[in-house]
C-alpha cells in the first residue's frame, strides 16, 4: 500500500558530514558495487566504454563552491569547496511513495526505509518526478525504478561480520564522513551528532521531512601568522658591525 505509515518504529538513516567529506567518490563506487551484485536488478551502464557513457547510480557526489560575503574584518574571504554526497533521504513524508500507482513503492513501518518492490514497478517514472532530490533513477536496461535501500541486505545480514552490517557507503568511507543509525532515538550516536553539530535538512520547504541529515561545514580557520617560515627568512643583520662594519664604511669612502 502506497499510503505512508503514520509513524515508524525506528528512523534508520545516514548522517553525512560535509566538513569531513573529501570528495573521493569511494561511497559511489562501493554503492554501485554492492547494489549491482546483491538485492534487486543490477545497476546497469549504457555505452560504458564508448563516447557517451551513462549509468544508474544510487549515490552521487556533487561539489559546490561557496563564496562567503565580504566583511570589513575579512574583505577577501576565501571560497570554500564543499563535497556533497547525495542519495535517498528516506523522508518521513516521502512524496515518491504516495504517487506510486501500483504499490511498488513503500515505506517500512519497522525502520522507515523507503523501498521499491521491483516485481510490481511498471517504470512509469512518476516517483522520480515527485522526488525533489533526484534520489530515484530509472534503470535503462531493466525498466524499473532504482533507489538507495540503505543496504537493507547488509544491515540485518547475520552472515556478515558485525562491523560490516552498515550500508556499503558508510563502511567504505575513508574519511569517516558518513554515519549510520537510528535518527528516531534521541540518544543514538547519530542523533547526538546531529544535535552537537547543527545537522540540517535539505529543501525543508518541500515538506518531505528527510530522515538523513547533513552536518554543515565548519568555518575555515583564520591564522594570524600565515607563513610559518617567515621569521627564519628575515635578514640576520641589517647593518654590519665590528670589523666588517669598519671595512664597509672604509670601502664606501674610497
Amino acid at each position: 500500500m502506497t499510503t505512508l505509515p503514520a509513524s515508524t518504529n525506528r528512523k534508520m538513516g545516514l548522517v553525512i558530514d560535509l566538513d569531513t567529506c573529501v570528495g573521493c567518490h569511494a561511497c559511489v563506487v562501493s554503492c554501485k558495487g554492492w547494489n549491482t551484485e546483491n538485492y534487486g536488478a543490477p545497476l546497469s551502464d549504457q555505452d560504458p566504454y564508448g563516447a557517451d557513457p551513462t549509468g544508474t547510480f544510487l549515490n552521487r557526489v556533487h561539489s559546490y563552491e561557496v563564496q562567503p560575503l565580504a566583511t570589513s574584518a575579512m574583505p577577501h574571504p576565501a571560497a570554500q569547496l564543499v563535497h556533497f554526497p547525495k542519495s535517498c533521504l528516506h523522508c518521513e513524508d516521502a512524496p515518491c511513495v504516495t504517487v506510486c500507482p501500483t504499490g511498488a513503492s513503500y515505506k517500512r513501518v519497522e525502520d522507515g526505509i523507503v523501498l521499491v518492490n521491483e516485481t510490481d514497478c511498471i517504470g512509469c517514472g512518476l516517483c522520480a518526478w515527485a522526488c525533489p532530490y533526484g534520489a530515484r533513477e530509472m534503470d535503462a536496461a531493466e525498466g524499473v525504478m532504482k533507489k538507495c535501500t540503505l543496504c537493507v541486505d547488509r544491515i540485518y545480514n547475520d552472515n556478515l561480520p558485525e562491523e560490516d552490517r552498515v550500508p556499503a557507503c558508510v563502511r567504505t568511507c575513508p574519511a569517516g564522513a558518513r554515519h549510520f543509525g537510528d535518527l528516531g532515538d534521541p540518544d543514538s550516536d547519530v542523533s547526538r551528532l546531529v544535535a552537537d553539530r547543527g545537522g540540517m535538512d535539505l529543501m525543508p520547504e518541500q515538506g518531505t521531512k528527510p530522515v538523513n541529515k547533513y552536518l554543515p561545514p565548519r568555518p575555515r580557520d583564520t591564522l594570524d601568522e600565515v607563513d610559518i617560515l617567515a621569521p627564519l627568512l628575515a635578514p640576520v643583520a641589517e647593518e654590519p658591525k665590528g670589523f666588517l662594519g669598519w671595512l664597509d664604511r672604509t670601502l664606501e669612502r674610497l
Binding site: Y64, E65, L69, P216, P217
Partner: peptide, 12 residues
C-alpha cells in the same frame, strides 16, 4: 544544499 548560510553557492 543547505550551504546558503555560508555564502553564495555555485555548482563547481
Amino acid at each position: 544544499t543547505g550551504l546558503g548560510g555560508i555564502g553564495q553557492v555555485r555548482a563547481f
